[in-house]
Computed example of a mutant assay.
Amino acid sequence: MKNNRNKEFLVGLIFMVILIITLIYKFILGDYEKIFRIGLTFVTICLTYLLYKKSFLKGCKIIYYINLLFIFLSMYLASVWDFYSIPNYDKFLHLLSGAVIALIGYVLFIYLTTENSRKEINSLTAVIFVVIFSTAMAGVWEMWEFTTDSLFGFQAQNNSLVDTMWDIICGSLVGIITSIPIYMHSKGKKIKIINMIIKDIEKNKK
C-alpha cells in the first residue's frame, strides 16, 4: 500500500513540476493573469491529494487519477493555455465532469454503506443517489464558476444564462448515463472499474 501511495504522490509531484515550469515561462512573458490561474491549479492539486489521503475518497486510486486528469484538462489546458477558445471544449469538459462526479457520488454511497446492506436494499437506491448527487454537483459547479467570475473577472459562464443551463444539463445527463453501469453492477453484472473502486474503498474502510 505504501508503494502504491508513493506512486500517487509522484504523479501529483510531476504535475506540480509542470506547473512550476509553466509559471516561469508565463512570468517571463509577463502573463500575470495566467500566473494566478496556475496558483489556483496548484492549490487544487494539493486539495485533491489531501482528499485522497483523508476523506471518503481515501485510497481510491482510480478516482484520484481521474480527478488529476480532469484538473489537467480543465484548469491547466483550458484556463492556462486557453483551450476554452476551442469550439465546444467547455461542453466537452462539462460532459466529462458528469461522469467524474457520478463516480465520486458512487464512492460516497459505498463509503456510507456496507457490503451486506447493499445486498439488501433496492438496486435502484445507488442509481437514485448517484443521479441526485450528479445533478446537485452540476449546479454547485455553476455556483463556483459564478463566484470566481464575479470575484476575479473570469468569463467561465460567458455572462450567459443559456451557457450555464446547458452546462448543468451536460453534467446531469452524463451523470445519468454513468448510473447505468452502476445499476447493472448492482444487479450482478461484473463491471471492472466499479469492482476496482469497491475493492479500494472496502480495503481502506477496514
Rank of each mutant, 00 (worst) to 15 (best):
L50R: 15
Y25K: 11
I182R: 01
T125C: 14
K2Q: 12
V162Y: 12
I21A: 13
S55Q: 13
K203A: 10
E120N: 15
N204I: 12
K203C: 09
T41V: 05
I38T: 02
L96E: 00
K192L: 10
I180A: 04
A138K: 00
M165S: 08
E8K: 08
L51H: 10
Y32F: 14
M165P: 01
L19T: 09
T148A: 12
K2F: 11
G30M: 10
E202Q: 09
S123L: 05
N3F: 15
I193K: 05
K119V: 04
G39W: 13
A136S: 13
I132R: 03
F129V: 04
T147R: 06
I194R: 04
M1G: 13
N67R: 10
I38H: 02
Y111M: 05
N88I: 11
K61I: 12
D149H: 06
I63L: 12
N6Q: 14
L103C: 06
I62S: 13
W81R: 06
I86A: 07
I63N: 02
I66H: 12
I177S: 00
K187C: 07
V100G: 00
Y49C: 07
A78W: 01
I62W: 09
L77A: 03
K205H: 10
A126Y: 01
G105D: 03
P181G: 09
F42C: 04
K26Y: 07
M137C: 06
T41W: 04
I110M: 07
D163G: 01
C60A: 09
V162G: 05
L108K: 12
T164F: 05
L10W: 09
G175W: 01
L73P: 00
I63K: 02
T48L: 09
S134C: 06
L103D: 01
F92P: 00
F42Y: 11
L13N: 07
K61F: 15
T44M: 15
G105T: 07
K7V: 11
L69M: 14
I168N: 00
I197P: 00
E115R: 11
T178Q: 02
I110D: 03
L95Y: 05
N67H: 10
F72R: 03
D82P: 02
L112T: 08
E8R: 15
I201Q: 01
E33T: 13
Y89D: 01
A102P: 00
I180G: 02
G12S: 11
L95G: 05
G59P: 03
F56Q: 08
L96H: 00
Y89N: 03
M1Y: 04
M165C: 10
K53S: 12
F15H: 06
I104T: 03
I132N: 03
L13H: 08
L95Q: 01
V140W: 02
N122K: 14
T44N: 13
L124Q: 13
F56L: 09
F83T: 02
F72N: 03
L50M: 15
C46T: 14
D90Q: 09
L51V: 13
C46S: 13
A136G: 06
N3S: 13
E115C: 08
A156I: 08
